[in-house]
Nucleic acid binder design. Structure first.
Lengths: 240, 240
DNA sequence: GCGAATTTTTAGGCGTGCCTAAAAATTCAA
DNA sequence: TTGAATTTTTAGGCACGCCTAAAAATTCGC
């Protein structure tokens, strides 16, 4: 017994973080847009070559996590959905923790969470969840899947689909683009802000009126332009 | 511009966590035992094959982090030492945080820290450090290197080298073996416990008297056996 | 409905970090 | 000091996750 067993190590990197990223991304597409996820869309979203998607699709399919048939869109199996929700739960709890306890601003948390979501243990995640009091929304307003996998989905309206005159409260803003978050925050737009659509233009984007906290429905708030891409990253509560 | 640039991703795993593990392990050997680190020792410690060590030694040497010449022991360059201390700082701050804030017990933190030390950002590490008030010792009594790389090294005596009759305060216990930590904790031995050596036997180990907190020097504490390996994991303050 | 454009898959490679087996160097011991 | 034992290095492979280029399938537009 000169040298100890060197088994077990082998596949040592952070578990299957690549696989988890695919599952997460597939889930996101079905969570928000309801379009089926084609390999090319997935490749573009993840910044990998289409052939990488094909490869991983086969592996995930063999593992029973995605439904894959050549030349068809990808969907998650129930197990795959559960795994994806688990990753998203980690991501959003970590973001919430960073903002609530560690002094981060909401536009700064995405990248850190992107890494930690693959390396935190269940034990530590539970500790964080408990400390935070089992939050159900992250700092961007995204629902945090519960430990049992259930997700609270309140109906909301994408700003890009709101007609002129519509008003409502911002319930959710995509965390994908930190610079967008920064500019929205600067304009006073964040979850729970009340907005009304003043004008919309297919190409140029929107102009919204941001209601002042004190006087929610008056026409006194500042007018703020929102780009077309920004408008498809903001959800407002469906009008009453 | 159908598909965005897919550069940058490439070497995406958690930076160079393998390299960092080698640096850390080399550093540990010189920090505690002062024997030179041969490839075989390193291989055994890390649970990899000797040939893997040779390979990595070449890479680290090319990167200017270790001094490597074929058939000779490995040492760290100044840059390598700095990097190693950085990793150890991360590890120990994370352990301290887990115990102080997240409800972990001191024997449970090693594995979690082992993973997180490679994925936490500098930003988050600073936030943790600040929250904890810039601690200088982790829960096992190990010194936490400062952000500037300096390490406070208080002289201590390895229990395995203490003569019968020696007494002193436990200042440090190696965190490498969780089961040892657990049994020591059960026996009431942890940093700041006062011990005196009652008997020692090269093969069988030691018997120490654990002083009761209230009455540090009296002969009233329980007698506790410490294995030979345990005795080389415990440091006590050098006798006054 | 059929060729062109696009999407997807296949084929072949690359770097990392690990392995085993065999060769080379070093160390030990009689 | 010299042959045996041990240590270290070299050589050749493997899995992963990514890539590019080329081939195949699908979809689109006239």
């Amino acid at each position: 017994m000169s040298i100890p067993d060197q088994v077990a190590r082998r596949t040592q990197p952070n578990a299957d973080s690549a696989a988890e990223d695919y599952l997460k991304t597939i889930y996101h597409h079905t969570e928000w847009q309801s379009a089926p996820v084609t390999p090319s869309v997935l490749a573009a979203t993840m910044g990998v070559a289409p052939s990488s998607v094909t490869e991983m699709a086969k592996k995930l399919s063999a593992a029973g996590l995605v439904n894959y048939e050549p030349y068809k869109p990808l969907t998650l199996t129930p197990e795959g959905t559960a795994r994806a929700r688990g990753v998203i739960r980690r991501h959003r709890l970590i973001e919430t923790w960073l903002v609530d306890e560690m002094g981060y601003d909401w536009h700064e948390v995405h990248d850190e969470a992107e890494v930690l979501e693959h390396s935190i243990s269940d034990r530590l995640l539970d500790a964080i969840d408990t400390r935070l009091g089992h939050p159900t929304r992250d700092p961007h307003g995204d629902p945090i899947p519960a430990a049992d996998g259930s997700v609270e989905n309140s109906p909301a309206l994408l700003l890009s689909q709101a007609a002129v005159g519509t008003s409502g409260m911002v319930v959710r803003i995509s965390d994908r683009d930190p610079s967008l978050l920064l500019s929205l925050a600067a304009a006073g737009i964040r979850p729970s802000t009340t907005l009304s659509v003043v004008s919309r233009d297919a190409g140029a984007g929107f102009i919204v009126r941001v209601a002042l906290a004190s006087d929610a429905d008056a026409d006194t708030g500042p007018l703020v332009p929102v780009s077309a891409s920004g408008s498809s990253s903001i959800w407002i509560s469906a009008p009453a």
